[in-house]
């Protein structure tokens, strides 16, 4: 089958799954067992979604949230990848950072929100730092594992062919660890996306999808809450499928370093 054919099929499959989930929701909403104010019909949610997209408010909120995510995620990559590589290459770095990482990693990022609010106030800085905190560890851990799992025969072969430390790093270790690094980016983005919504609920003022949901609760606007959830899910889905899926198809899948599921 052609690649385009496969792509179309996977889109159709995804659409079927989502349509089935929507149908179940609609059945529940129309069953009459729940108050419409708490469980609005899909048509209401869709109307709200279109209206908030059309007046630009939902887009503006999304841009704020995306800005915080990308900033925090970018910082997580900038810290996680180099530190992961250093930890894997140098025992001293590993010995120093591993206890710290092991102790910090289990702390939920939400638990830090009140503290960060006191330190950094309400708004972008706190939310970005929360995102950064949540996203760094998966990036760091996957890079660390990836570099340690680089096949020694590649290093040996490259050494025979005269590779110096610099070439070894850029031309062997980074591509050799790429399946793990890409997995790290995926997990890291997911954590970032989860963390930003939570952080915005508590520590953001007036803007952001998390704030929209939290604010809508005050007025019992469940349709707005659900519309915001749809946007959150949609953006997350697009990133997962298009951005990370695309990176994977262009690199590790093409190189045969990971395989797509068979059947």
């Amino acid at each position: 089958m052609t690649e385009n054919g496969q792509r179309a099929r996977s889109l159709i499959r995804a659409a079927i799954t989502l349509a089935a989930a929507a149908a179940v929701y609609e059945l529940l909403a129309r069953s009459g067992y729940f108050a419409p104010a708490l469980l609005p019909k899909l048509s209401v949610v869709v109307t709200t979604l279109i209206a908030t997209l059309a007046d630009g408010s939902m887009i503006q909120h999304s841009v704020y949230t995306l800005y915080r995510v990308m900033f925090g995620f970018g910082l997580a990559i900038a810290v996680g990848i180099p530190l992961g590589i250093l930890m894997a290459r140098f025992t001293a770095v590993e010995n120093f950072f591993l206890p710290l990482v092991s102790a910090l990693m289990p702390i939920p990022s939400f638990a830090l929100v009140p503290l960060f609010m006191l330190w950094f106030g309400i708004g972008n800085l706190t939310t970005i730092l929360i995102v950064f905190y949540a996203a760094t560890f998966p990036m760091l851990f996957n890079t660390w594992s990836g570099v340690r799992s680089v096949n020694p025969i590649w290093l040996r072969a490259a050494g025979c062919m005269g590779a110096d430390e610099h070439s070894l790093f850029w031309k062997v270790i980074i591509p050799g660890a790429s399946p793990f690094i890409i997995t790290g980016m995926r997990q890291s983005f997911l954590r970032a996306w989860i963390a930003v919504v939570g952080a915005e609920m508590i520590a953001a003022s007036d803007w952001g999808l998390g704030w929209v949901i939290f604010d809508a609760k005050e007025f019992l606007n469940t349709d707005i809450m659900l519309a915001a959830l749809v946007v959150i899910g949609g953006i997350g889905y697009l990133f997962e499928r298009l951005v990370f899926g695309g990176i994977e198809r262009a690199t590790v899948l093409r190189w045969g370093m990971v395989r797509s599921a068979k059947g």
């Binding site: 096949n151 040996r156 072969a157 490259a158 005269g162 050799g176 045969g256």
Partner: peptide, 24 residues
Amino acid sequence: FQDFAQLFPWRTALGNVTFGLEMK
């Protein structure tokens, strides 16, 4: 080497063969 894995999977056949020359 004996191991087929000695080639760099992220480089084409040509890219693998040019590696040493690149280093030179």
